[in-house]
């Protein structure tokens, strides 16, 4: 009699526990279902960002092309946004961008590649462990600091040797931009070269080749796609770089090839016009977006090209 009531009591307790657990499980089931949705929404913010960029640039650029024909914009060699008979030709800006990029790559290309060769082929592990972090510091310095350096040190230095160079010119920011890009090319090229298997080096060395011959005839050809990709990324970086050229190259919109003169890049034009409080709705305000979309396409093509090269031409060992 007493025993059966005890069993009954126990059974009630267990059924309570089961009910409680079920409730708990429902809560955690709810969590399991809601969390992935929340995370998915967070992940889609990156897609929203892309859409936002495209929408902003396109919608405002279309406004611009209503007043300035698209053909005139891309073939015009005169850029006079502020004058009475304003003219909007983007070629002076593209010219400035390309010239500063070429100067930067003439510095960063060879020096970056040779640094990569030293770090990957010649340097001992000890030396590498000191040099690499130091190069990374160079990559971590904000570009505004490089801009300051170009304007207050490199330009006066160049002018003390060649007095005919202007106080603002494209040469000095181009050179400093090159220094800024060295670590990027060095580390990407080095990655490409260190992933070449050692057996190939040893084969070459065993045949009697010197280290230099091995590097030039075996390692570099094997790592070529990675090296080219690093150059293309460097170019993309130079095209998008803003503060160095804005500070040190001035705002002359002349269409010239003289590197001792001031030239404006696409990025510097955006800073000048956006910072100049151009009233929203004016043609000059919309021109900002037309230039920006050109810049966006330039860098996007370069980035896609870099990815294509490193995927398509990679040699697998």
């Amino acid at each position: 009699m007493q025993r059966s009531s005890e069993v009954k009591h126990e059974a009630i307790r267990i059924s309570e526990i089961i009910a409680q657990n079920k409730q708990k499980k429902n809560v955690s089931n709810l969590f399991e279902k809601v969390i992935p949705t929340i995370l998915f929404l967070l992940a889609s913010i990156t897609i929203l960002t892309t859409l936002g960029i495209l929408y902003t640039l396109l919608s405002q650029a279309i406004q611009f092309f209503r007043t300035v024909p698209i053909w005139e914009f891309f073939t015009g060699t005169v850029l006079k946004p502020l004058s009475q008979n304003s003219e909007f030709g983007i070629l002076p800006l593209i010219n400035g961008t390309l010239i500063s990029t070429i100067i930067a790559m003439l510095v960063a290309g060879p020096i970056g590649l040779m640094s990569a060769i030293y770090l990957s082929e010649y340097a001992s592990e000890k030396v590498r462990r000191v040099l690499k972090p130091l190069l990374e510091i160079l990559a971590g310095i904000p570009t505004i600091v490089y801009g300051f350096f170009a304007f207050t040190f490199v330009t006066p230095l160049i002018r003390s040797i060649f007095p005919e160079v202007g106080a603002t010119n494209i040469l000095s920011p181009g050179l400093v931009m090159g220094v800024m890009i060295i670590p990027m090319i060095a580390s990407l090229s080095e990655d490409a070269m260190t992933s070449v298997p050692n057996a190939m080096r040893e084969g070459s060395l065993a045949m009697g080749a010197t280290k230099l011959e091995t590097t030039i005839k075996v390692v570099i050809p094997a790592a070529f796609s990675g090296i080219i990709a690093s150059f293309v990324l460097g170019i993309s970086r130079a095209i998008g770089e803003t503060m160095i050229v804005t500070i040190a190259s001035g705002s002359s919109k002349n269409f010239t090839f003289d590197i001792t003169e001031s030239m404006q890049t696409m990025t510097a034009y955006i800073v000048e016009v956006a910072g100049g409080e151009a009233a929203a709705g004016t043609t000059i305000y919309y021109s900002l977006y037309a230039v920006a979309i050109t810049l966006f396409v330039f860098t996007l093509v370069m980035n896609l090209l870099a990815r294509y090269i490193s995927r398509k031409f990679r040699e697998e060992y």
Binding site: A43, T46, I47, T49, T50, G52, I53, T56, L57, Q60, L233, S236, I239, G240, E241, T242, T267, I270, V271, A274, A280, L288, Y289, A292, L295, F296, T299, L300, M302, N303, L304, R307
Partner: peptide, 27 residues
């Protein structure tokens, strides 16, 4: 698709983000 999109975003010049911010957040 998302991962490609993220790596493309990493390559967009910072000044373009400025224009995005100006248009969306400021205006």
């Amino acid at each position: 698709f998302i991962e490609t999109n993220i790596s493309n975003l990493a390559g967009v010049p910072s000044i373009v983000y400025g224009l995005l911010g100006l248009t969306v957040f400021v205006r």
